[in-house]
Design a protein around this nucleic acid. Structure first.
Length: 563
RNA sequence: GCGCCUUUAACUCAGUUGGAUAGAGUAACUGCCUUCUAAGCAGUAAGCCAUUGGUUCGAGUCCAAUAAGGCGCACCA
């Protein structure tokens, strides 16, 4: 257990409850049920390391003024042998607690001992999570929303692993259904256009150049062999030729973006193994459907959705929702994951209640499906909305974005704001190698420490060995603040995992970098007053480097030794 | 018309289950390198937390209504 915040907080909780117990038994306060109270870390450190509002929430049931209750409690608190050294009563009745200096030393020691494992927790208890993200349409290149979804999903997955969950990353390939038909049509037209005049692309076909390129390559490989064959043979051959290339392209591009999936799950599997038909059959058997104008409708409103929807069209082909239902049934029942998490764009949010209603009808606990909705990104360049790539002049894709900005910057920026907030992405700032760019700011802190350690090492100063007591002399304000913040990493990891919000970790790393830079400016290591202080500060720097590295590693962002 | 999201400093955003004097970064202005990386630090200035009402010891935070903006509401995916 390296979460010293939690340890201290638990100890505090016990101290308070014991004190109250004594007050009740000696009749100082009435024996009333205890209302819920907080133990929190005050924003302002002059209010202590922890504070509780217990005296305030007890005011009403005890029919006593809050400050009076606070005084009674504090008289009963015995701090000897605890992690706390003093308390004070403040404001309307807060009780503020101050940690002993030794606690801070324990933090530094815990980091140096745990190394790469510092920050990990066992909160997830190995619960099995299936995290699906990006799942871009394999009929074309990935867009900017996929770039955000990739960064959020992948970082969330690592964070949850840090928090003790078992996580699998999954990409769902829509390799069946209508969009594949559209893909086939687009390829077919482009192919025939090579050999014949007067064939028009339908308006709703894929107009991109990638389709033309596929058709040309296909023509190069097979010539006009397929022009005279049946449309079905031609379309199948074209899709069989182009789709694997596209999927391979998605894999390659995502790998460049440092995303490795555990599973690439094909929609076509669900059609082939009969799962899609099975879903319709079960829902029919459960009497959850009705026929209207030749189509099969699902009674979604009976299961919490706002509207009924069509399962099977009047032409006999299921709508896209059915494979989706089958897919989520597969995740939660067939593969028995404890939780399925989908990262989806805001344009899909309306569909979530429908999916959940169907799962409920199938007897699956819909609460096992959580959806992280991410709002649209607005790319900005020169203070204007950027729609097109700088180099190619075409719509910005994941790939062209990474031509413009570094992978580190992309991963960091997309996780700088919480997913459910509309967010402006300043392309100019992301390429800038300066203080204004938060990712460089954090990396700079890491490089600075590396350089510092190397310099001291070159002049013969190394950490020989450390013992807990030697850290007690780190008591300057900048040192204390730095250590206090490092202590909260396990809490931040838990909180980020619980709220599905990787932005907590990017913000954490920026704050850590800030505190280090402040420390660096105020406290020289090389010219420390004593040899012992030099040693302790060097150890502190190593601890900061470790925590920075653990935070950035969680986000799969590089930790440069030099900048 | 219905649903979801957003509204906090000039700009981009934080603000932990309701708590103490609402915070960062950018831009502006002032300082700090013969001393471990100035890609840094210190300081100044900047606010009717969209508006109105409600809930209570206490509201940026919860509830209701209004306004502005974004996204959805298919026998598309």
């Amino acid at each position: 257990m390296s979460n010293l915040i939690k340890l201290a907080s638990n100890e505090l909780n016990e101290l308070i409850l014991n004190a109250l117990g004594r007050l009740v038994s000696n009749g100082s306060v009435p024996s009333e049920p205890l209302p819920p109270f907080n133990i929190e870390i005050p924003a302002d450190t002059s209010h202590g390391d922890f504070a509780t509002n217990i005296a305030m929430v007890c005011a009403k049931p005890f029919k006593m003024p809050p400050r009076k209750i606070a005084e009674l409690i504090s008289e009963q608190l015995v701090l000897d042998g605890t992690m706390f050294e003093r308390i004070e009563i403040a404001g309307p009745g807060f009780i503020n607690f101050f940690l002993s200096r030794r606690w801070f030393s324990l933090v530094v020691q815990a980091i140096l001992d745990k190394k790469n494992d510092y920050g990990k927790t066992d909160t997830g208890k190995g619960k099995r999570i299936l995290l699906e993200f990006v799942s871009a349409n394999p009929t074309g290149p990935m867009h900017i929303g996929n770039a955000r979804g990739g960064a959020i999903g992948d970082c969330l997955a690592s964070i949850m692993q840090y928090a003790g969950y078992y996580v699998e990353r999954e990409f769902y390939i829509n390799d069946a259904g209508n969009q594949i038909e559209k893909f086939a049509t687009s390829l077919e037209v482009r192919y025939l256009q090579i050999y014949k005049d007067g064939i028009e692309m339908p308006e709703d076909a894929y107009q991109g150049e990638d389709i033309i390129m596929h058709a040309e390559e296909f023509a190069k490989a097979f010539g006009d062999k397929y022009v005279g064959l049946s449309s079905e043979e031609r379309r199948n051959a074209l899709v069989d030729f182009a789709l694997p290339k596209n999927i391979k392209g998605l894999e390659d591009d995502l790998r460049k973006y440092r995303i490795e999936y555990d599973n690439w799950f094909r929609e076509s599997i669900l059609h082939e193994n009969g799962d899609v038909d099975k879903i319709v059959r079960i829902l029919k058997e459960k009497d959850c459907t009705y026929e209207l104008e030749g189509a099969t409708w699902f009674k979604a409103t009976d299961f919490g959705a706002d509207k009924d929807f069509v399962l099977v069209r009047s032409n006999g082909i299921p709508t896209y929702v059915v494979p989706d239902i089958a897919y989520h049934y597969n995740k939660l029942v067939t593969r028995n994951f404890d939780k399925a998490i989908d990262v989806l764009g805001a344009d899909h949010h309306g569909y979530v209640p429908r999916l959940k209603s169907a799962l409920t009808a199938l007897g699956v606990d819909a609460n096992k499906l959580d959806v992280v909705i991410m709002q649209m990104v607005r790319l900005m360049r020169n203070g204007e909305v950027a729609k097109l790539s700088k180099r190619s002049g075409k719509a910005i894709t994941l790939v062209t974005l990474l031509d413009e900005i570094s992978i580190d910057a992309a991963r960091f920026y997309f996780n700088l704001r919480e997913s459910n907030s509309h967010f402006e992405f300043d392309l100019d700032l992301a390429v800038e190698k300066s203080a204004q760019n938060p990712v460089y700011y954090v990396q700079y802190a890491h490089a600075r420490i590396c350089s510092l350690i190397d310099n001291l090492s070159a002049s013969g100063v190394n950490i020989i060995d450390y013992d807990l007591k030697q850290f007690d002399i780190l008591d300057k304000q900048q040192e204390i603040e730095l250590i206090r913040h490092m202590a909260t990493l396990p809490c931040e990891v838990d909180s980020a995992a619980k709220t599905y919000d990787p932005a907590k970790i990017t913000k954490y790393s920026v704050e850590l970098a800030t505190l280090f830079h402040k420390f660096y400016d105020a406290c020289s290591v090389k010219n420390a007053e004593t040899e012992q202080l030099k040693q302790s500060r060097l150890a502190l720097c190593k601890a900061v480097k470790q925590v920075l590295s653990n935070s950035l590693t969680m986000l799969k962002i590089e930790c440069p030794r030099k900048m």
